[in-house]
Design a protein around this nucleic acid. Sequence first.
DNA 1: CTGAAAGCGCTTACAG
DNA 2: CTGAAAGCGCTTACAG
Lengths: 324, 324
Amino acid sequence: MRVTIADVAREAGVSKTTVSRVINTKGEVDGSTAARVREVIAQLGYVPSSGAVGLARGSSRTVGMLVPSLTWPWMGELLQGVVDTVEAADYGLLLFTCNRGAESVQRFTTQVSARAFDGLVVVEPENTLSHLTTLHRDGLPIVLIDDRGHHPEFPSVVTTNHEGGASAARHLLAAGRSRPVVLTGPQHFGCVRDRLGGFRSVLPEVRVVEGDFTELGGRLAMERLLADGVAFDSVFAHNDISAAGVLRALRAAGRRVPDDVAVVGFDDIPMAEHTEPPLTTVRQPTRRMGEAAARMLLSHLGGTSVPDGPAVLPTELVVRHSAP
Amino acid sequence: MRVTIADVAREAGVSKTTVSRVINTKGEVDGSTAARVREVIAQLGYVPSSGAVGLARGSSRTVGMLVPSLTWPWMGELLQGVVDTVEAADYGLLLFTCNRGAESVQRFTTQVSARAFDGLVVVEPENTLSHLTTLHRDGLPIVLIDDRGHHPEFPSVVTTNHEGGASAARHLLAAGRSRPVVLTGPQHFGCVRDRLGGFRSVLPEVRVVEGDFTELGGRLAMERLLADGVAFDSVFAHNDISAAGVLRALRAAGRRVPDDVAVVGFDDIPMAEHTEPPLTTVRQPTRRMGEAAARMLLSHLGGTSVPDGPAVLPTELVVRHSAP
DNA sequence: CTGAAAGCGCTTACAG
DNA sequence: CTGAAAGCGCTTACAG
């Protein structure tokens, strides 16, 4: 049988109230009484039932995390940042995905109503913002990790997409490249517009090709440009995956990187070190974004008022061989 | 204020007992009564508090997952498999890491005692097996995803490491390669011994080099072999990351892959498609291992007795350019 | 400084 | 088929 607060109380010869007080160090308790209670707790190996505590206190000391998918290359770092921060604060982390579309969302919403967690960190699944906004208005604390460039009415963590694009352009310009191609992601993403805008603020003369963030998309786009005889000396791809496709297409066509064409990616996923040649890229501080989001949520739960603007974490240009 | 079972009971003009019965469809309830209750539930948007249900029932309808790190390349697939299965069964998934060593383990153990979850899926953090065994003996249902080749006394999911090694050897042999080097992982891992044993069962004449599963380790090992003038026509690396290091070292030394040296990895992480040349590798069914582990745990929680042996999922050789 | 009692929101014998 | 009551393991006014 599990050890309960009643067992401790009986064994220590005090009331449950007193035991509760020493556990939570609230209210005055006589020193020697407290010592005795603590001793009994240790001896019995008593640990309060999280469920019972949650029910009595009306909170679960757990935060939820909702992500579209766990298999994206930067998701591991992000999750690690969130988990570390949450665990350090002695909270639990309940993980949800939206793999099965509407059904997942339904299930997730039920968990919200069931009060399974106190607050939510979310990497926005497509077309969920309005639903999340409703939950937030109904009182659920939410922090959004915003990779799409939305601007929700609740707190969020973003990176400097505009400046990231600008830094890529400055780097290419300094290396004497003046005829760049920008291979974007889907242009309805805010982050895509920002990256492009930043790049253009430095290098206005750009050939823009809309991509889809996939390796295959990058490869095909590059093959088409080469077939069309477009002249360019550099490529800025909006993520590393599509940059990998670009590298492959260039190699297949006999173009040398970086001699003939310099290539810059975005994200700095683990693969970026291992492409041929290793990829120069604009690093997103993924892990720190996770940490920041979790910290914001926790301090919100702790009663601190949240900042009204998004928390902005800086990108960083990582120079490797593809664009020295 | 949140809607409780009492609100529903009052509104429907029945007792809480009856409401509980229609929610859980247990016990006989008059058809029209049930219909009325269901209507009120829908109208009020009532969702049972998971905390209260858990307390009353003595279980939380949540499973825990413990992993050493979230940033390993195959962890995303594994997690996705677990999460999907767990969510489909209407359970929650509580995620724990062991980033901070002993402190993490302590915190984790507390959660166990707090009954925060009903069972555990674990990818074993180093040196935790005996502790997990204790928890299991104390009554916690556990399923191990065993990437180390331990053989715990509780249920586990493994892949065919021996056969995977053998399949790599058969493939190289069929391609006319007879002087292989095997770059292993740390040799105290059971999986490493199995992969090597399988390989040797087909190609006994092997040069074995102990590696450490890192890209750098793979690169350095290969550089040393080349410097030593060792003659070989193929490499079987025990994971893809170190295979990537091997590829890089070979390229730097001017050896052509696969013409001069064929290279086979293990795992089939996302990067394997993107190395130069793309990597032939022994695929671990990572996602399905996650699914299998979750299924075993859930059926155990559901009362089904668990199989005594480990569940074995087959590897699969994926042929790409590095060893056609 | 300490305790009896009510309450958190459910489930489950037990009685009818 | 239905309900009153006890109980799950805590916390928290309230009273002393």
